[in-house]
Amino acid sequence: MFDYPDWKTLRQSTFIQSKFFPHLAEDTPTFFGVPQALSKEDLLGADVVIIGAPYVAGWGDQYFGVDKKEWLHSCKRVRQQSIRYRSGYIQDFDLDVFETMKVVDYGDADIPPEASYAGTVSNILEAQAAVERKVKDALEAGAVPIVIGQNSPCGSYAIAKPLSESVDGPVGMVSLDTHWDANTADRFSMDPRIAGSGNWKDSVYKNLANFHPRHLVEIGERGMLEHPDIVRRYLRDGAEFISGWRLRTELGIEGTVKLLPKAFDGTDAVYAHFDLDVMGGAGPAPGDILGELAEPIGMTDYEVIRIAHESGKLGCNALSFICIPPGSPVMYRVVVYCIMYFIAGLAMRKS
């Protein structure tokens, strides 16, 4: 586990010390220093809305062998790392995203802190509803919500549900993950009302009528973690599955990108879900940073950032992150890159 620096130390770093920016809290700048939105009215005219969803599933103080405090800091730390960059200018594209895209930070959803330690059904549903409200506000304003979360349902189902309700036609999905999260019950609560860490995708396709696996592009799972009947059912229903092995052999990243339109063709909206345990064991994320969630053949930082960018270019309507590897500054920067390169894709499409 990395020893992540405190805000006082970060504030004195070469990249931050001479900058001034809005704060959500003493140790929490807005994402990239963009304006803070306090109400629905502040979202009017926004192209992108940043939302935090600090929630960790289950009971007790640890999640898969890692202290929950480390997981819960992700919303704050992604914002802290974002502030180190000089501007919204991405030299790879000779594009400053803030010249054409209005981005605001809507703060964190009002999730009860106890929801991350006492996994009662009422706590979980209250936390989910808090995220749904902010996502719905962003969608009603005509903006793309980007949710920085850590666990389901707050970083997954709580985005898919309001997006589903915002359109009449089919909704596609681009999903990056180590695990399918398509079991038939939430492992912690065993309650059918909970779209939790192990079953949120099953809940999406059971409960949200305009989601169908034929519009799903699933990327990154590999190895021996899944029950064969679960994976084969999605394949029979038309999902495009790009396993870690398939990505590295027959497709590569270019072939993978060419398959992303399957989520967009014939749909009214698309949700991109990035579970970043998909990177454990590859790229800048060593295996032990994720505890029990790490698996070999993980995706690299470039592959994840590239898919975020291409999803933006294709016109994705919502993006969220869960399971951000805790403690590593560079992993939080990967999320910053994903968000900015995604917004760059949206900007390219807009122009």
Rank of each mutant, 00 (worst) to 15 (best):
D6T: 03
R11T: 02
R11D: 03
I16H: 11
S18V: 07
S18G: 05
F20A: 13
P22L: 02
D27E: 06
F31V: 02
K40F: 10
L44D: 04
G45K: 06
K69L: 06
L72F: 09
H73M: 05
R77P: 09
R79S: 06
Q80K: 04
Q91V: 07
F98P: 14
F98Q: 09
D110Y: 09
D110G: 02
I111Y: 00
E114W: 13
E114A: 07
A115D: 02
A115F: 14
K136C: 10
A138L: 15
E140Q: 15
V147H: 01
G149D: 04
Q150L: 14
P153I: 02
G155Y: 12
K161A: 09
K161T: 00
V167K: 14
G169T: 09
S175R: 11
L176Y: 12
L176C: 08
D181Q: 03
A185E: 03
F188Y: 15
D191A: 07
A195K: 12
G196R: 01
K201C: 02
K206Q: 07
I230E: 04
R232T: 13
Y234A: 07
L235G: 05
F241W: 15
S243E: 03
R246F: 15
A272I: 10
V278H: 12
A282H: 15
P284K: 04
A285K: 13
L290R: 13
P296R: 05
E303D: 03
E303S: 04
G312F: 09
L319R: 07
P329S: 00
V330S: 12
M331S: 11
R333C: 03
V336E: 00
M340K: 05
R349E: 04
R349D: 01
